[in-house]
Design a binder for these strands. Structure first.
Lengths: 140, 140
DNA sequence: CTCGTTTCGCTAGCATGCTAATGATAGTCC
DNA sequence: GGACTATCATTAGCATGCTAGCGAAACGAG
């Protein structure tokens, strides 16, 4: 496997699968988790706001929100002032899984990087951050 | 963005999108590219063999092969000896895009890692390899 | 106030991955 | 040689992302 892109694809796939499996036990899927990370910080946002914060498209959030509604994680409510807006609110269930989900993600992170030194971990973080910055600073 | 998993998710998404856009100009999508990498090495493999080499499921290859057939990249042909098997063969088009696709991927790789030093790149490769090894050595 | 523009969420349809189930064929055991 | 098992591609249906296009609502100019 010489290709850095291929290495990246493979690592990302394995991490994503492992994260999904770990969080699934708490009723949260990977696509739903990113929405929760935003709502845990600020409840009652609109799909558009969430999409902008996560750098995904609005339909992605709309569809994920529908699945989360069915799973009992969020509640959709129209905005009282602007009839175009819909606001997403966390259910008690969504609040209650915050810590368990955080814990399993931390555990996965520790496990996945168990064979790396602290310095290597720092370099990895730094490299990822640089790559993200480099790729983001062109399309806007 | 404190979470390493989140950093990873973001970087992987950006790289995937950039790779897709770059290869698209040559009629190849990211999901089709991984199949091509295998067939470029050895033509005439079965969906099951390709899936095993790529560490994905057989249906993934079957569905991707259908789209590649429609795109004129591969030809499906039943095995002459074992009627259960289907063999996938590269089209002339698929052969002709090998180098252009390799080039745009190299260019993307260079661009994405332009702000990293050679040492940082080495560390990144090493870290990714270690993470892959760590995550693979548990499920089998 | 009205008309055109902008801004929303949403639906439709696609690509890429998955699991589960189906059906056809090959191989094996008695 | 006939039945059981294993193996293979395929289909169906789901989750997660995307783009394109819709209809409703708000806003701004005149």
């Amino acid at each position: 496997m010489a290709d850095l892109l291929a290495l990246f694809t493979q690592a990302a796939k394995l991490l994503r699968e492992a994260a999904d499996e770990a969080m699934r036990r708490h009723g949260v899927r990977v696509g739903q988790h990113i929405v929760l990370t935003v709502l845990w910080q600020q409840d009652g946002l609109t799909p558009g706001e969430i999409a902008r914060r996560l750098d995904v498209t609005t339909p992605t959030i709309v569809n994920t929100a529908t699945r989360m509604e069915e799973a009992g994680l969020v509640i959709r409510r129209p905005d009282s002032a602007d009839a175009r807006l819909v606001r997403l609110y966390l259910s008690p269930l969504a609040r209650s899984v915050r810590e368990p989900v955080r814990d399993v993600r931390r555990a996965l992170e520790r496990h996945a990087t168990a064979t790396l030194t602290a310095a290597e971990l720092d370099h990895l973080r730094s490299a990822l951050t640089k790559i993200i910055a480099q790729l983001q600073n062109e399309s806007p």
